[in-house]
Nucleic acid binder design. Structure first.
Lengths: 341, 341
DNA sequence: TCCTGGCACTCCGAGCTTCTGAGTGCCAAT
DNA sequence: ATTGGCACTCAGAAGCTCGGAGTGCCAGGA
């Protein structure tokens, strides 16, 4: 049962608190914003908001501060307000040039995102789960050394060396190659890995097929590697800058950032397969040990059509409007770059 | 003109200050250490040390704190004192198993080092400058698509895809391959890159040799990539734990850590090609914007015989004895692992 | 010549009090 | 519904005292 104006007051409180870092009082609101009413009226509205637990007073007779719930309502009502600043738009277009190298492109993206938001930025690698194996190539690079090349249909290529116990002739190599391609090519990464695992179970390695077994093993290893999600990070230093916003130390946050597993689970929780921006605020992240931080993420679509996520992480008291805009813009731009390829 | 006992006093001051984080007075020294003399005598020694600017009193009538110069003398006199703790030794042997994958091995090394020292750990990738190109392989993976595989004699393998404007037959591929291998194989990475650059200058690309030119280009790109020094890092969270040791904020330190360039220059300054441990203390790092941090590094030798460095970074007030021991041990162990290969 | 106990001196920092001002809740009047 | 007025609250800055850890120095003893 909050009036329309009360919501405006909430917006004002969030805005002022984010920029000033100090509890906001009724007086300063009437000063800084053009409500056509007196401070006493604002106070009544604030009482309403407090009733609904959207704001809270740190101490009796002190200004108010938004609660996690308040931030949440604020964010939910936000949606597509603020336009990207001129400088930000220019930065994105300057720094994000197309690049053939995915590693390189994502590294640049994450740096850019952390710079325009002044937060810690995270970019998840596209998952290869839906991509499929195009081809396996075997190349002899020495009498007993075989180069195994795995080619994925989204352009990714990896290779490993395999040592054989006996010299290899071209016939044998070609035989193994045909066999292997029968087993995995055109299948999805997931299916191919499953097929290989099964083969290994059915025909245990013995002296006659040791090379085949070794090759299978390294291919399986490479495929498994794809299924691991990975992410890149930049701007951890920004945490130190916003240190006062964390009650204790930034230690647990930095620690979580090093544990990529935690971050990946966090990303996983935020509607995978949803392209649009979503935010996770304050204690909503408590299960991950990040109860004073908020995360704003957006999905982006990679060349193979998979959806991965990117976003920023910072103190609960962050500039949601600005960060949401920036994250959305970068995600769209990145999708565009990857789609053109 | 410092007496022998004065040096012992310096050692005691460093030890106590490192463990207690508080200025140490003459009384607490006689209490905690078995000097056979009275506090007054210690005071005289401390006056000597202060004369030599090895220690300093933060305020009149307060205990003393080592200066950068004091730490330096302490470290220089240290050399091979403390043995590795049982737990540390076990940790090293547990976590550092041989691994075929250099990335993986170095990632594990850096995590291990940060865990046993509780500092930020850094491991530099071995430079490929002295390694040489073993072989270039070309594989047709489609009518107009060529896979270029670069094999380095230290076991590293990389690949790129090249698109041709016209269909390729086996003859042409084989011709290009022979030509290319003549140009680069058995040469060092540096020499090979130089040779390719020259070829490009001599015969500019035209319609007849566009594939050769493209292949040269990607090989050159791969080789150039090797020459970039890189490093991996772990344990940044430990900075937050030792935050009180930094007068201002840890922001500049975290920032420097993200700028790998800075760290690489820092590593570069510390006698490259020297295998043994060396330390850079406090203001000695001022040119890098790290005047409150110390760095302890050691060289390690990679399989191809190049020397790279690894080490830890932390507040000037750090446990030099322990960190030096740990860094040395990890470097030796890593060298051993890489040498066995 | 080096060491020691004694003594006067310094001053940080913990603990206490005071005081001010920003901010509140409530109420009667509009 | 909105407003001005009023009594009330309390965090935090400023000022104060005071104890204790630590110092420098000196004169006497080994």
């Amino acid at each position: 049962m909050v009036s329309e104006r009360s919501l405006d007051v909430l917006r004002a409180i969030v805005a002022d608190y984010v920029s000033s870092r100090e509890p906001v009082g009724s007086k300063s609101i009437v000063d800084r914003h053009q409500f056509g009413v007196s401070a006493a009226t604002i106070r009544n509205d604030m009482a309403q908001l407090e009733e609904e637990q959207l704001i809270v007073a740190p101490h009796t007779s002190s200004g108010r501060v938004p609660t996690d719930k308040g931030y949440r309502l604020f964010v939910d009502q936000l949606r597509d307000k603020r336009p990207l600043s001129q400088a930000q738009r220019r930065a994105i277009e300057m720094f994000l040039e197309p690049s053939a190298d995915l590693d390189d492109l994502l590294a640049r993206t994450v740096r850019l995102l952390s710079q325009i938001t002044n937060q810690v930025a995270l970019v998840q690698y596209p998952s290869f789960a839906r991509a499929s194996v195009r081809h396996i190539e075997l190349v002899s690079v020495g009498p007993t050394t075989l180069l195994v090349v795995v080619i994925i249909d989204n352009g990714r290529v990896d290779q490993r060396l395999v040592e054989s116990r006996h010299p290899l002739d071209d016939d044998e190599i070609s035989r193994i190659k045909t066999r292997l391609n029968d087993e995995v090519s055109t299948r999805t990464v997931t299916a191919a890995a499953a097929a290989l695992a099964e083969c290994e179970a059915v025909e245990p390695a013995d002296t006659t097929n040791d090379v085949l077994a070794s090759v299978r093993e390294v291919v399986l290893e490479v495929l498994s590697h794809y299924r691991e999600d990975r992410l890149v990070m930049a701007g951890a230093a920004n945490l130190a800058r916003t240190e006062e916003d964390f009650s204790g130390s930034i230690f647990p946050v930095l620690e979580a950032l090093e544990q990529q597993v935690v971050l990946l689970r966090l990303f996983g929780e935020m509607q995978v397969d949803q392209l649009d921006v979503s935010a996770s605020i304050g204690r909503e992240n408590a299960p991950f040990g990040l109860d004073e931080t908020s995360i704003v993420t957006s999905g982006y679509r990679s060349s193979a059509g998979e959806i991965a996520r990117l976003g920023v992480l910072g103190p609960t008291r962050m500039d949601y409007a600005g960060n949401i805009t920036a994250v959305r813009a970068v995600a769209r731009y990145l999708t565009r770059l990857l789609g053109v390829e």
